[in-house]
Structure formats: structure tokens, C-alpha cells
Design a protein around this nucleic acid. Structure first.
Lengths: 361, 361
DNA sequence: ACGCAGCGGGAATGCGCTTTCCCGATTCAT
DNA sequence: ATGAATCGGGAAAGCGCATTCCCGCTGCGT
């Protein structure tokens, strides 16, 4: 028993399919009340559910929003996803999910799949990469996106424009001032921390990571401090953990060598990495903030109960997600196309970078 | 410039649309190599992307999997979502996301929307509710699901079958032994904890919560202990926090009254609530496990770095998600329909419930 | 050599719906 | 009272593709 069709409804109501269509879906022309009623009753009694595929085919638009993330289980992305979802709901659309682990090639495939489904718009979250190995992938991805745009699709990207994308129309990016915020974080930390700084960055070429590293260095410089050493590792918890292990060793050496060794201040380019690093230090018997200060970035909600409370930069993740979805024609057709929507974050200093009473220690 | 169509490709290649269709999509009949090549070249040069809507309409199947969660930003759900996503990828399908906050009515709407899109299958995660106020909602939801199943849809649900659902076919549930695991947790805790037990439950009528509470009590009983008092609150962090506040007050009173007051052991029915409760205790100056032991349920990955490490019951969330998606015809057509797939969890005792050296305290 | 099965390709139909176009019936202005 | 404008409804043409049916062709058996 396949679902009933518009035609069946129409027949039951004794009207033409055209009429049935007009009453059951928002049409400019609304048939007379009596007829409309008959149709609605018929639809009800048959349990009619319009076939969205057919509708989409007929009016070439699908009510779908494609969302591309690296990993939906990563709290950073799931927070953004929540925002996207909220925006989708407002637009009476559904969201189609694709996870790609950040691989440009997978992203390209996802875009193609979305295009095939005629998604009204697609939003890409997740740091862009300009690593050498991704060059070709990026180019292909950009081409795919351009095509999608030319065919009338709208795309929103959070963070950086896709590398190499050239379509001016239908593109819009939610600009996260990673660099500036990182600089501000550095300055605020520098204000009362007087040991060395070290940053745990993601792989070189990952734009978000690079921006934050650069910003941090700039902030240090503007505070009259020398640049921090940069450790590279994975952009996730285990990356942070590994780097943390390395740092722990170093800290311990320093402590035993010169008893007056200054306390290290670690900046991990995102919260999850920071937590990983903190776990590593702890596993080596070090305490935060006593033996080292540590700060992250993002202010992941789930991590807010972590102790010692993590200093970080709060990003309005959910709002970012909401802003990233392009407003499509159905709505107000706000000035879209080549738009850059700015958001802002906030440096949030907490316990993990607190000064420690040297005397007591 | 709308995307190019099969017909255009066919024309460019000098063949009929039928032939083009045959070569570009897996058909039983594969045209000659020379022709196939021409077609592929033509498709390539036009940047042809098949219209999935049209394909779906023609062969009435969409390659879509609908996923219903309460909140995608909740780590419990995002972990499951990751599993679903993985399974979807294996089946060469895409996942459509709907978040409903657990409202049966929203869930019904989501099911209807999925049905409209002709999703091949839909998976429902998130605790069922039998609260009075949800009775009607549940009935309607069940009806909608039944209809979906009758029309050939497959549904997978994690946890409990939808209340009132009757369609025997096309239904399958991933059974999480919440009750048994909670009982086991209680027994293991009872083995070395000798203070009172108290459980922080979600709203009454939330099946998952009820099961865990019941199981815990059973475990206590089998250990020869009296049932624990049950506090009710929201099923989320803030619910746990509120309950934690209440408990903190009580603990402090107990401590000041009888100096020999036994330490409380708190069981929150999920990790997020446990974290909330822990935060509340801490904010009241209490320490874990010194002033109270606490355990959760789920073993949320992001929370594993929490300190003191939270005792909990590990659930293979990602696998649960993977198992929840029904195997559809395309695959192996494994024995589906009315199936119950069991998964299992594991009690994981960690620092938060460790015995504390009374002497030292 | 002749008939028949088999194969490679095209024409045509239909998936379920929207939308233009058309037509008869009203209503309105003159 | 009559022509024009309007309204309410139906017929039909797609939307882009899969697929059934059909047809001409080649290769085989006897």
C-alpha cells in the first residue's frame, strides 16, 4: 500500500488534481470554501501526505539545507548544528547532514550530493585547510561550489571562504575574528602572567588554527613579549594530549633544574585540545594552574564544568550556525550574496590561568 | 542557468536519454563501451549532476535516512548521530536531521516530513515519555509511524518502542538494558559504599529515566539495602544542578549535625545531570568524593576528562546509532522487522565514587 | 540457408505534483 | 441590455528521470 496520491484525493473529493493541489498547498488561487473543505476532508480520510520529491521536482526547490561538518559528535560542530537546525526550522526547511572529517574531497562529494538533491542552500562549517596535500582537493571543491552557486544555490560558510572559490554571488561567510580574539586573549594573559608562553596549534595550514596562532603571537608582541614557541599536533583532543605530554616532560625538567623556573602558560587553539593537554599534564602529576596555566578557545558548553575552569574565548556557536544559513527567497530575501556577517567573541578568563600565589607554593 | 539534465547529456552524446540513463546510473543493462564513453564524456563536460529528486520520484526511493533527536547539541545525541551517519554512509544514503526536544507532537511532524520526503527509513533516538500530558501526542505519533511503516518505511528506535505503536513489520528497536545496567551499578556501588543512596531522576514518565531508577533500586534491594530516595528534576544539566543544590544543603546540615554522618552516594540518571549535580555541590563548597560520591550513566566522551573522573555506565553510543538504522533492501536485507537488537553497556567505576579514607578526613 | 534467440539501442510511458492555459459562468461598467 | 473583465474550475503540459516495451540487428543451430 503505497502512500496515497494527490490524484486519489482529488478523485475522492470529486475535483480535479489541479484544484486539490491548490487547496492542499499554498497557492495564489484558493478554491471556494466548500470545495476546499471537501478536498481537505478527503485528504484527511486518506491520510494523504504530499510527496515532497514530486513537489520539489515540479517547482524545482526542495526545502532542504545541506550542512557539512567535520564530525557531528564534536561539540563545536554540534553546537553550530543546533543553530543551523534552528534557522532551518524558521525557514520551514529540513537539514541534510554530511560529515567529512575535513577532507576536501569528501566535502566535494557532499556538495555534489546536496546539489543532486537540489538543496536550497548549503552551509559549510569546519576549518578550511591550505595544506599542500589539499590543494587539488580544494580546487575541485571550489569548482563544485561555484557550479552549485551558478545553478542558483546559496552557500554559507563559517570562518573562511572556501579557498579558491570565485563565485561572487550566493556566497556568504560568517566571519569569526579568530585572529583578533586570540590577540586579545594573549594581551590579557600577558597582563599578569610572567612566565613563558607556548601554543599548541593544529596542523599547519589549517586556517582556523593558523589564525589563532598568529593572533596570539601578535597579541604577545603588542604586549612587548617575544613570540611563543608553537607545537603542532592534531586539531582534536588527542592532539592536545600528545602535546601536553611533551610539555609535561619539559615542565618537570624545568622545575627540577632551576627551582625558580617560571610557570608556563599554554594556549591550545581550541578547548578540546586544551582539555586534552590538561589531561596529559594531570596524568604526569602536574596541576593547573599551579604548575602551568592553560587556555583554550571556543568555550564549548559541555566543557564549562571542567575544573579548573578553562580560560577561553567564548564564541556564540549556536548563533554562528544560525547566521550561516543563507536566507533564501522564501523569506525576506535579505541582502545576500557576497555578504560577510561578522560575529564576535569574548575573552573569558577563568581559573585555569589564574595567577598562583608563589609564596604558598 | 539551471543544472543540466540527462536529456541534454544524451543529446550532446548523440544518444537517447534512455541510453544515457543506463550508462550514468547503475542499470542492469550496460550499453557498449564506446557509447558509454561518449555519454560519460558528455556528462563530464556539461558538469551533469543527476537530479536525485527526479530519480527518487521515478524509482520511488530517496536514499534518505531520517534521524530524530531531542537536541543535536546534546553529546548523548550527537554521539548517536555519528553512528547513524556512519551507517548511512555505508548504505550510500544521506541523513536528514530533525530535533524535537522530545515533544511527541514535534516528533510526529518530523515523521510526517520524513514520510513526505519518502525517507527510506527513520531512526528515533531519545527517551519515550508516558507522561499524562503526552498521551495523546504519543498516540498520534504512533499512528503516524504505523502509517509510515505500512507504506513500506522502516523505523529503528533506540531504547523503547514508541508507546502505542502496533505495526509489527518494519520496526526494530535497539534495546539498551538500562534497568539491568543500573542495577549492576547499584550493586557494585553498594559493595563498598556504606552511606545512604539518593538518585536524581528525570521527570517521572520518561522511560529511560524510569528504567534506570527502577534498576538502581532493584540493585540496591538485591544488595540488601533499602530503596534510595528519588529526586525529580529536568533530564539535563540544569536539572542535575538544581537537584545538586538541594542535596548540598542537606549534606551540609548532616555534616554539622552528626559529625559521624555517613557520606551520601548520588546516582544521577545520566552523565550530564551528574555533572550538573557535581557542579552544584562544588559551588556549595563540597568536594567529591570526599563529601559525597556521585555516579552517572552513559559515559559521554566529552565528559571523560572531567575530574574527579565520573563513575558511570558506559554505553556504546556510536554503535547504538549504527545499529539503529534499519538495513534497507539495497543492502543485505538482513532479518528485519520486529527485530530487537540488544546492546550492552559496562559499569565503569572511577574516582567520583571512590571510598575515602575516613581517617585522613 | 533459414528461423530463432539474444543483444544493443530508442520510443514512450509514468512517477506525483505544479502551473499555465483555457473555458464557461458571473459580475460589472456603460 | 450588452460587451468586457473577472472568477472558479478543469485539461494538459511538463519537471528529470527510470523502465518497459519494441525493433532491427547479429550469431547460432540444424
Amino acid at each position: 500500500m503505497a502512500a496515497s496520491t494527490l490524484t486519489e484525493v482529488a478523485r475522492l473529493a470529486g475535483v480535479s488534481p489541479a484544484t486539490a493541489s491548490r487547496v492542499l498547498n499554498g497557492s495564489a488561487r484558493t478554491p471556494g470554501p466548500d470545495i476546499a473543505d471537501r478536498v481537505r476532508k478527503a485528504a484527511e480520510s486518506l491520510g494523504y501526505i504530499p510527496n515532497a520529491q514530486a513537489q520539489g521536482l515540479a517547482k524545482s526547490s526542495s526545502g532542504l539545507i545541506g550542512l557539512i561538518v567535520h564530525d557531528i559528535a564534536d561539540p563545536y560542530f554540534s553546537a553550530i548544528a543546533r543553530g543551523v537546525q534552528a534557522a532551518a526550522r524558521d525557514q520551514h526547511k529540513m537539514v541534510l547532514l554530511a560529515t567529512t572529517a575535513g577532507t576536501p574531497d569528501d566535502e566535494r562529494a557532499a556538495v555534489a550530493a546536496f546539489a543532486a538533491r537540489r538543496a536550497d542552500s548549503i552551509v559549510i562549517a569546519g576549518s578550511r585547510s591550505i595544506r599542500q596535500q589539499d590543494r587539488e582537493g580544494n580546487a575541485v571543491l571550489a569548482a563544485e561550489l561555484d557550479r552549485y552557486c551558478r545553478n542558483g544555490g546559496r552557500v554559507g560558510v563559517v570562518g573562511h571562504p572556501v579557498v579558491g572559490a570565485s563565485a561572487p554571488e550566493g556566497y556568504h561567510v560568517v566571519a569569526v575574528p579568530n585572529e583578533d580574539l586570540a590577540a586579545e586573549l594573549a594581551r590579557e594573559l600577558a597582563a599578569f602572567h610572567n612566565g613563558d608562553f607556548v601554543v599548541i596549534g593544529g596542523p599547519q595550514g589549517l586556517l582556523t588554527s593558523d589564525d589563532r596562532v598568529r593572533g596570539f603571537q601578535r597579541g604577545l608582541e603588542s604586549a612587548g613579549l617575544p613570540p611563543a614557541e608553537v607545537l603542532r599536533s592534531g586539531f582534536d583532543r588527542s592532539g592536545g594530549y600528545e602535546a601536553g605530554l611533551a610539555l609535561a616532560k619539559r615542565i618537570k625538567v624545568g622545575q627540577s633544574a632551576a627551582s625558580g623556573a617560571s610557570r608556563l602558560c599554554i594556549f591550545a587553539v581550541n578547548d578540546v585540545m586544551a582539555i586534552g593537554a590538561a589531561a596529559a599534564l594531570r596524568s604526569e602529576g602536574l596541576r593547573i594552574p599551579r604548575d602551568a596555566a592553560i587556555a583554550g578557545f571556543d568555550d564549548i558548553e559541555t566543557l564549562r564544568d571542567f575544573r579548573p575552569a578553562l580560560s577561553t574565548v567564548r564564541l556564540p556557536l549556536e548563533e554562528i550556525g544560525r547566521l550561516a544559513v543563507p536566507v533564501t527567497a522564501t523569506g525576506g530575501q535579505a541582502p545576500d550574496g557576497g555578504t560577510v556577517v561578522p560575529v564576535t567573541g569574548q575573552v573569558t578568563l577563568r581559573r585555569s590561568t589564574e595567577a598562583v600565589a608563589e609564596a604558598a607554593a
